[in-house]
Nucleic acid binder design. Structure first.
Length: 499
RNA sequence: GGGGCCGUAGCUCAGUUGGUUAGAGCAUCGGACUUUUAAUCCGUUGGUCCUGGGUUCGAGUCCCAGCGGCCCCA
């Protein structure tokens, strides 16, 4: 304490004292000629593999194999000149026993400098302790990295949701199942790519900086290019550029990438999130249903999700084929209105407090559907055949100009996928881009003129099916996560005044 | 944008109707311990009670505003 006052670094407050104690140990390591930041450490076995070997050992035997492991100190129990450590790596944990006699006086000086959170490498004999715990009985220790910060409570870990997201690295170390969930996310994305690759799809990358944001109904983030002195927006969807590639003869394309929507934050919304969009020439929305089922089955398997499970209070069974239900039929069942009759729909909407005056009937209908039907859909269910006016990028059903060949896949009341038979008539597309629906704010409208896209369509886009899947929601669903922030490593946050 | 709940030590949490010097566990530091496993035992350090106002003899506690978080609704 007195030393620190002399050096001007007064240890005021617990945090400073805790750090000072760690820095003292760091200094001791340096004085022992040890680099507290370590170096390359080859030949370490993953803990999971060590455990597999340990399980095969006779528990009384004292001639187990020599193993080398590396990891972070999560627990440290000192019994005099005997120290037990729980060492963790990405694959699991194992107990290390360090004895003063066993490791010798030089190594013991290192053991004296260990704190929770430090990273070390250990050589030792694999065996079982007297109390029946698989243990590496250390013969040597290599110091690899000092931790200057105090880890969270070793039993409770980090609980505060804010801290967990701002300091995700700590959450990954200490949070129950946190790393597993992000491992699952990686496996899910891998599976998506595999399904598409197996079907001959090419993965491509469209521009994230665009002149105008199309392909969805959302407000974009605005930015500016200095050298070109032009305003730009971040993309809100992948659709319009992928369809240009269909024109270009890339008949099966997909993009798996980040999109940005300048809107509210909620348990199901983050301003940046990951979308999959896939387009298949010569297909339609039925083709996309098959693809969606294949992706759901493959990703569930990759994530280790059972076929039948509970999520958000809904029971879900992922055995294909998924149920298909017509939009109008669901609306009729749930609300009792006549979907074909705008007056009947408006009356039902009014009962739910939905504004009906001066609004396009399909907008009202869409609001009514969202307010009443969506939450009842345990799913998985393909809701098919949407009111055409709210689908400006979708081909109309042959002989039914007011019905769009669109489906949304619902699971547990949440929209997981959205697909169309793609509109490829350039004249109709141009007209729909021009048509602003009454009662729909520009921000909420997909109708935004994109003359370059129209030009592309005029060169001929083959009939096609297109599919969009929200990867974050898919991961939420398959890992039973209640919030999108549980599946995004670094979700958006307001800055904090202190830290 | 509206409503509800929350913010106390590095972490996890108590804190009664407003009442003496704000507590515990973990972590830290010192001590005992060669079979522990959230080790145990003895001792020890550590506080902008989110911030700013207000009410009061007296505020962690009540009121107002702000900041931050979680949830619900639009």
């Amino acid at each position: 304490m007195h030393e620190s006052q002399e050096s001007g670094a007064t240890a005021k407050g617990t945090a400073a004292q805790l750090e000072q104690a760690r820095r003292a140990k760091l200094d001791r390591l340096v004085s022992l000629g040890i680099d507290p930041w370590g170096k390359r450490f080859d030949g370490g076995l993953p803990m999971a593999e060590v455990r597999t070997r340990g399980d095969a050992l006779d528990k009384a035997a004292e001639d187990g194999p020599t193993v080398r492991v590396a990891g972070r100190i999560m627990l440290l129990r000192s019994a005099g000149s005997l120290v037990f450590i729980d060492l963790h790596d990405r694959t699991g944990r194992i107990q290390i026993m360090l004895g003063k006699k066993q490791v010798g006086p030089d190594a013991w000086k290192i053991v004296d400098c260990l704190d929770l959170g430090d990273i070390i490498g250990i050589d030792g004999r694999l065996g079982w302790s007297k109390t029946g715990e698989m243990t590496v009985f250390a013969s040597g220790i290599e110091f690899l990295t000092k931790s200057l910060e105090t880890p969270p409570d070793k039993y409770h870990g980090l609980v505060d949701a804010d801290l967990r997201q701002r300091m995700r690295y700590l959450d990954l170390i200490h949070g129950e199942g946190v790393r597993d969930r992000f491992v699952a996310r990686s496996r899910i994305v891998e599976a998506v790519r595999r399904v598409l690759a197996d079907r001959g799809y090419l993965e491509v990358e469209g521009p994230t900086l665009q002149e105008s944001a199309g392909g969805a109904a959302a407000r974009p983030f605005k930015t500016h290019h200095n050298a070109l002195d032009m305003p730009l927006v971040l993309r809100i969807a992948l659709e319009l550029h992928l369809k240009r590639l269909l024109v270009g003869g890339m008949e099966r394309v997909f993009e798996l990438g980040r999109v940005y929507r300048n809107e509210g934050v909620s348990p199901r919304h983050n301003p940046e999130f990951t979308m999959l969009e896939a387009y298949e020439a010569y297909g339609d929305y039925g083709t996309m249903m098959d693809l969606t089922e294949a992706i759901l089955v493959a990703t569930a398997q990759a994530a280790g999700t059972p076929t039948r499970f509970e999520w958000m209070g809904h029971t879900v069974d992922l055995t294909p084929p998924f149920r298909r239900a017509k939009y109008d039929d669901l609306l009729r069942e749930v609300t009792g209105c006549d979907p074909e009759d705008p007056a009947s729909v408006a009356a039902a909407a009014a009962q739910h407090g939905i504004e009906t005056a001066n609004r396009h009937p399909d907008v009202v209908k869409s609001d009514l559907f969202e307010a009443t039907v969506e939450k009842t859909l345990s799913g998985p269910v393909f809701v098919i055949d949407y009111p055409a006016a709210v689908c400006p990028l979708t081909k109309r059903k042959a002989g039914h100009p007011h019905v769009a060949e669109r489906f949304e896949l619902y699971v547990a009341g949440i929209e997981l996928a959205n697909a169309y038979t793609e509109l490829n008539d350039p004249d109709l597309q141009e007209e729909l881009f021009r048509t602003q629906l009454a009662g729909l704010a520009a921000d909420e409208s997909m109708a935004r003129m994109d003359t370059d896209f129209i030009k592309a369509l005029r060169h001929g886009m083959p009939p096609a099916g297109g599919l969009g899947i929200g990867i974050d929601r898919l991961v939420m669903f398959l890992t039973a996560a209640p919030s999108i922030r549980d599946v995004i490593l670094f979700p958006i946050h307001r800055p904090r005044a202190d830290a």
